[in-house]
Amino acid sequence: MLALTLPVVAEQSVFELHIKDHLFQPSVLYVPAGEKMKLLVFNQDPSPEEFESFSLNREKVILGKGKATLFIGPLEPGKYEFFGEYNPDSAQGVLIALPEQEWLQHKAKHAD
């Protein structure tokens, strides 16, 4: 098994998601495709929430007023929907993985 699990030594981009009033903020999150990244999820509500996404293959409970770290990617370019399992009607969002050129343009646009 150890042969399959050589450590990953790469600097990871960090992105943040907040949960407030059972909503994800932002509900649309742009990230670069082809990179491993860290997603910090802050739950500002007093009740727990579960970040869940079948397409990302991630499921993580975040306790009330708590924080969770998810390790995601590398992703193919595309859309990856996620939702809060405790409040699926309101807590919904999408993560959009952009190809390199589009990601650089997106970063430049939002750096202004």
């Binding site: 098994m1 399959l4 699990t5 450590p7 990953v8 491993k36 993580k60 998810l70 990617g73």
Partner: peptide, 10 residues
């Protein structure tokens, strides 16, 4: 380990 933290989860 957290899911995705390393090249395999343990």
């Amino acid at each position: 380990t957290e899911q995705g933290q390393y090249s395999a989860d343990w």
